[in-house]
Design a protein around this nucleic acid. Structure first.
Length: 291
DNA sequence: AGGGGGACCTGTGCGC
DNA sequence: TGCGCACAGGTCCCCC
């Protein structure tokens, strides 16, 4: 799924049709996604104006004018398609070929938001690991969905010192620690692999051993990787906005993710990228230069 | 308490 | 062509 940079880009892409706009009609095509839609979901949203669109971790938050917030998570396969002015813009951030929602009528088109932009926004998610719900804005932080979620990695307060304090004593691998949303918010499998590569740290290393000196490498690497991906996402958004409604998707390039067996891209390193499985997920790394 | 493993879904690509 | 299996970017629950 979309990790932090993709969710950030989706959020930015949605702003023109959502922020400041009113939801004129809302349709659901099933009872829920990963979790059921709350009672009165459609009624809560209909007629409301979106005051602000923002992101927290991998969640998109649309604050409404009635003190509630529409919460959207794309899961692994969720995407949003904006239909406006006769064209379709797909927002998903997933590598590879992207296919438009079928106008809201496809078997995996689950929710449709009509706004006075005017635009139609279709939520498509064939695996249904995503979610959409409505929560009280003032109590978002205490909701089980957000309670315990860690710091935003791009916040200034996310520093080698604060990160070290959170992983100190952790006997788990640094890979697992970075995937744990309570340790740091928004990272997923790809950007964890990429950040560790950049910091030259093995995904197998014990988290506690990264506290201190190694986090001086890792924390800046995380910020750098995420910022570059957001920049790339932003430019791809611009690109397909200017195209004819044919959809684009982010053209990511990864240094290690998905490159099993290929040469390490670090200058002067003659290693090859290896894939291992850690807690059920693939880790890609160069055993020669990541220690 | 914290971590690993399975469950939740559907689709795709590969080897046989 | 068809079948079965492995795998996919996330999260949550259960059990140790």
């Amino acid at each position: 799924m979309p990790e932090l940079p993709e969710v950030e880009t989706v959020c930015r892409g949605l702003k023109p049709v959502l922020e400041g706009h009113r939801l004129t009609r809302v349709q659901t095509r099933r009872g829920g996604l990963r979790i059921p839609f709350p009672p009165g979901f459609v009624q809560h949203l209909t007629g409301r104006r979106v005051c602000q669109l923002r992101r927290r971790a991998k969640y998109i938050l649309a604050d409404l004018d009635n003190g509630q917030t529409l919460v959207i998570h794309l899961g692994m396969s969720g995407r949003l398609t904006i239909y406006r002015d006769g064209s379709a813009i797909v927002l998903d951030g997933v590598e590879g070929e992207s296919v438009a929602a079928e106008g809201g009528h496809g078997p995996h088109d689950h929710v449709i938001l009509f706004t006075d932009a005017p635009a139609r926004i279709v939520f498509t998610d064939h695996r249904r690991f995503g979610l959409m719900t409505v929560l009280d804005t003032a109590h978002l932080a205490e909701d089980p969905l957000f309670e315990g979620i860690g710091p935003e990695p791009l916040a200034e307060s996310f520093t080698p010192q604060s990160f070290s304090a959170r992983i100190k004593g952790k006997k788990t691998s640094i890979k697992a620690a970075l995937l744990d949303q309570r340790v740091v918010a928004g990272l997923g499998n790809i950007y964890v692999c990429e950040s560790l590569f950049r910091a030259q740290i093995s995904p197998k290393r014990l988290a506690t051993s990264v506290a201190g000196a190694r986090s001086e490498q890792l924390v800046p690497a995380i910020k750098q990787v995420l910022r570059e991906a957001i920049t790339a996402g932003g430019s791809s958004l611009r690109d397909y906005r200017h195209s004819d409604g044919k959809l684009g998707t982010f053209q990511h390039h990864f240094d290690v993710y998905g490159r099993e067996g290929e040469p390490c891209l670090r200058r002067g390193c003659s290693g090859a990228v290896r894939r291992i499985v850690q807690s059920g997920r693939s880790s890609f790394y160069c055993p020669k230069c990541q220690r």
